[in-house]
């Protein structure tokens, strides 16, 4: 089967989530949401919370419940993005340049300054892989990649997924290290387009393609589940057709 780039990413992110009790996905994240739903199809009993979904959100106590739940350790994996992300895992969702008179202003930190600390596996997902987004040092730290000893920090970055590659976060050094290159991407290209220094293994693996079984899940039940929240993505990328639900 031919594999779309989005399907490669869904499979990759599902691998990174792994087998967990509960993965939560924020707004505007069709690929992470599909990956979480794929994980739930593979692993019995895995709970998926998709914000803004009616069917895949069980919260009944208002916007705070997600955060309270995470603070208690009831959420194992979550996704964040960033206007800027640096090699130490710092995330900037606020501004570029001087904070008081920014060159560019992003929407704001959302829940990052909390969830990054308390969710054990935070996967950073930022498709645009350029020196503009992946920088040596972020201009504003919405949430830091690591914290000094003594700081309550059960959570933090696990990996960074872009349109070109996967970085794993190396806790001892507090830096991202290259884990795999997507098919057809060269190490030179990644070096050219990354603003931070990163460690590289002697032999860099290629990001694994999803198996036929996973592709069938993505294009079938995962697409159907996803269509409720992301109808356009489910139809255009995964080829989902609503009338198939009638059968």
């Amino acid at each position: 089967m031919s594999v779309r780039p989005e399907e490669l990413l869904i499979g990759t992110v599902a691998e990174l989530i792994g087998r967990v009790r509960h993965v939560a996905v924020g707004a505007l994240s069709p690929i992470p949401a599909a990956a979480a739903l794929l994980g739930a199809r593979r692993h019995d009993g895995m709970r998926v919370s998709i914000l803004n979904s009616r069917r895949h959100s069980f919260f009944t106590d208002g916007g705070r419940e997600l955060f309270d739940c995470a603070g208690q350790g009831r959420i194992d994996a979550f996704f964040l993005s960033g206007g800027q992300i640096d090699g130490a895992g710092n995330v900037n969702l606020v501004a570029i340049g001087d904070y008081d008179r920014p060159k560019a202003r992003f929407s704001g930190s959302f829940g990052s300054a909390y969830l990054y600390y308390v969710v054990p596996k935070v996967i950073l997902f930022r498709l645009e892989h350029t020196r503009r987004t992946l920088v040596d040092r972020v201009d504003f730290i919405s949430a830091p990649g690591t914290s000094p000893p003594g700081t309550y920090r059960p959570g933090g970055p696990h990996a960074l997924v872009t349109e070109l590659c996967v970085f794993q976060f190396d806790k001892p050094s507090g830096r991202f290290a290259l884990a795999s290159l997507h098919p057809g991407v060269s190490l030179d290209e990644v070096r050219d387009r990354t603003g931070f220094a990163f460690a590289t293994p002697d032999v860099v693996p290629t990001t694994a393609l999803p198996t036929d079984a996973d592709l069938a899940l993505m294009r079938g039940p995962v697409a159907r589940d996803l269509a409720e929240t992301y109808p356009a993505f489910a139809a255009e990328v995964l080829g989902w057709r609503a009338e198939e639900t009638v059968r």
């Binding site: 208002g62 916007g63 705070r64 955060f67 309270d68 603070g71 606020v94 501004a95 008081d100 008179r101 920014p102 060159k103 560019a104 202003r105 704001g108 930190s109 959302f110 829940g111 990052s112 300054a113 909390y114 919405s142």
Partner: peptide
């Protein structure tokens, strides 16, 4: 309009994080 106002400094911003407001 939010972005333009923050860049121009015409609106004071108190940046927060979701659970802090809750």
């Amino acid at each position: 309009r939010f972005t333009a106002a923050i860049r121009a400094g015409t609106v004071r911003i108190r940046d927060a994080t979701c659970p802090a407001i809750h």
